[in-house]
Amino acid sequence: MAEGVKSRIKIPKEARKGEVIQIKTLISHIMESGQRKDAAGKLIPRHIINKLAVTFNGAPLFSADIAPAVSSNPYLEFSARVEESGTFKFTWVDDDGSVYSDEQAITVT
């Protein structure tokens, strides 16, 4: 597992039933594109986060297929309509096989 990978999630703690909320996510990652060359002129191998998958109470909500053209420390923003209290689960997949996850709960009234 790559060292020092940190994720950040921004979600409102509370929402009204049926409200559409904004979700913002960030994960620290170099996102080496595979296009760059090192000092010796050799291609630096690709190493990126290639997927983010998000579930709410276990049901698939949103996912993104991420290409090397996404900037380092990939930032993603998207929406969710919440009908009940529950937990968002975020899973990022690294090219090296590592999987990073994070969770955030919301209270719906």
């Binding site: 559409v20 909500l61 993104a64 297929d65 290409a67 993603l76 998207f78 929406s79 969710a80 309509r81």
Partner: peptide
């Protein structure tokens, strides 16, 4: 990048860099 939504998304909206 490709964004994959669901009816639960509420709004077909996404942003990235």
């Amino acid at each position: 990048i490709t964004f994959n939504f669901s009816p639960m998304s509420g709004k077909a909206q996404a942003a990235a860099r």
